[in-house]
């Protein structure tokens, strides 16, 4: 019987209302999608390697992309994918965070510019890209997707079908990629230039707005989602406890990643600034070059050249 359960194959994780079991399940659609993502990426890299060779940035990109895909796979496949699809709203929210805060940015960072250009050329996607990379568009898309994929009348039917569950996951990944475009698009010229605005964007798009639906979920007096309320219990968690945890995760679960990124933006900017200073010589607070250390200090009346 156990062997038969192991061999039970489905396309995508969905709510089945069957009691939870730790017997692994195969979701062939998840594996196919991961294979397609990694396979097409690998083929592109191989082609590039044969034609012009891979530089160090390409090699770093591979690492990021593989890590992002690994996060995507972990969040999509059994057991996390199944738990989030049909048992616990808190896991559903966790998966959203993994999709949008981990997998999407890592995969985006892992796409070199030449690859992005080729993709957009082939898909005739430049128009969509030009729109999506605008911060206000990206923030709206990201948060509309957040709200849309957490509406009870959307979640219940979508999580109850394999295709619907697949669609929700796809929306999360796409909206996550769009959300990160203004910050880590492969086309550096399109990125938000000023570090402070980059941080403001990240805070508003990924940190501030999700607090609203998060609060709504946390403080809702009743279970909001039929699919999770009627799911066979996982452990001793009641639907109310699970929902409160999910709301809390939506509100503050992104904080460690978000503030790490914001901190990294500042640190990297600072380091780059120092490097820049070293390259062009010492500068004062206003960016004017300073004289060598052994030079006679300028008198107040002596203008600095």
């Amino acid at each position: 019987m156990r062997e038969l359960q192991v061999l039970a194959v489905s396309w995508w994780c969905q709510s089945t209302r069957a009691p939870w079991t730790w017997t692994p399940k195969i979701y062939i659609g998840v594996w196919i999608v991961m294979a397609v993502i990694l396979g097409s990426y690998g083929l592109a890299m191989r082609k590039r390697a044969k034609s012009v060779g891979l530089d160090s940035r390409d090699k770093r990109a591979i690492t990021w992309f593989v890590l992002g895909t690994l996060g995507l796979w972990l969040a999509t496949d059994w057991p996390l994918g199944l738990l989030g699809s049909g048992y616990l709203l808190s896991i559903h929210t966790t998966l959203y965070l993994i999709y949008t805060m981990v997998a999407a940015p890592l995969m985006l960072i892992g796409i070199p510019q030449w690859m992005a250009r080729a993709m957009l050329d082939r898909l005739h996607g430049w128009g969509v890209y030009r729109w999506s990379v605008k911060p206000w568009i990206a923030a709206i898309v990201l948060n509309l997707a957040l709200v849309f994929t957490h509406l009870p009348f959307i979640v219940d039917p979508f999580r109850s079908s394999q295709f619907g569950s697949f669609a929700l996951d796809a929306i999360w990944l796409i909206s996550g990629v769009v959300g990160w475009l203004p910050v880590v698009t492969p086309f550096r010229g399109d990125r938000i230039k000023a570090p402070i605005w980059k941080c403001v964007y990240l805070f508003i798009a990924f940190g501030a707005f999700p607090m609203l639906p998060g609060a709504f979920i946390t403080f809702s007096p009743l279970p909001l989602y039929r699919v999770y309320e009627l799911a066979p219990r996982f452990g001793d968690w009641s639907p109310e406890d699970d929902q409160q945890l999910a709301g809390a995760l939506m509100k503050v679960g992104n904080i460690p990643i978000l503030w790490s990124v914001i901190a990294a933006v500042f640190v990297k900017t600072s380091l780059a600034q120092n490097k820049d200073d070293l390259r062009i010589g010492y500068v004062d607070d206003e960016g004017n070059p300073l004289p060598p250390a052994d030079a006679t200090p300028p008198t107040p009346s002596t203008p600095v050249a």
Partner: peptide
């Protein structure tokens, strides 16, 4: 994590 470098770099 690969965060944006300043434009001049």
């Amino acid at each position: 994590m690969a965060i944006d470098a300043p434009p001049h770099l």
